[in-house]
């Protein structure tokens, strides 16, 4: 009997196997995406133990909700990172971490110190560079509201209080900034 190595399969083909209860298919997805997932969780919550909890919740959610994936709505990776993002926001809103961070003025990006082993995947590093370049084209006031919202888990209302800017201004900056970023990315060819 030929034993198929699931690690050779594309993400989209692993999902239906996992949805039927194949733990090896899940493991292959974990191997591929846990780095990006944990990095995002750590960047958002700023504490290793919480980042691990968030990553664990997100992957167990993936294991149990696999049948829910819809390829029309984006890649498997984006889907997984979307789950991590949701869980991290929950963790931020649950924990005092959020309240404590309210007092310091630094942006989510500035908080990051590399704590663990940095991934040595070259393709992944190139991709990060392309996204950072696209973020670099934004004026700082647009980048700031986007980072506070996405990585900080703040609502636009909280951000308007934090920055003492009208709600409409904050929403407008988010929209404009993302538009510019989208434009820059279309030149950098990053597949999300």
């Amino acid at each position: 009997m030929v034993v198929m190595d699931v690690r050779a399969l594309a993400d989209e083909d692993l999902i239906p196997l996992m949805a039927r209860g194949d733990a090896r298919a899940f493991e292959a997805l974990y191997e591929r995406h846990s780095g990006a997932a944990y990095s995002l969780a750590y960047r958002m919550v700023g504490a290793r133990a919480v980042a691990e909890d968030v990553t664990q919740e997100a992957f167990l959610n993936l294991w149990r909700s696999g049948a829910h994936y819809d390829r029309v709505r984006g890649s498997v990776r984006s889907w997984i990172l979307g789950i991590v993002h949701h869980r991290a926001i929950d963790a931020l809103r649950r924990n005092a971490v959020h309240a404590k961070r309210r007092s310091d003025d630094e942006t989510a990006a500035e908080r990051l110190e590399a704590p663990d082993k940095v991934e040595d995947d070259v393709a992944r590093r190139d991709e990060a560079a392309i996204v950072r370049n696209a973020m670099d084209v934004l004026p700082s006031d647009q980048l700031k509201v986007i980072e506070l919202a996405y990585f900080g888990g703040y609502t636009h209302v909280e951000i308007s209080e934090l920055l003492d800017s009208p709600v409409g201004t904050v929403k407008g900056r988010m929209r404009l900034g993302l538009k510019k970023m989208r434009e820059a990315l279309s030149h950098g060819a990053v597949e999300t």
Partner: peptide, 28 residues
């Protein structure tokens, strides 16, 4: 849909960090 592409790229901007092996053991 257009802006979502940019938002979905945001998590890829940070330095990639590897999760501890113990986490994989727990999840598996």
């Amino acid at each position: 849909e257009e802006l979502r592409v940019a938002a979905q790229a945001l998590p890829l901007s940070g330095p990639p960090v590897l999760p501890p092996p113990a986490l994989k053991a727990r999840i598996m």
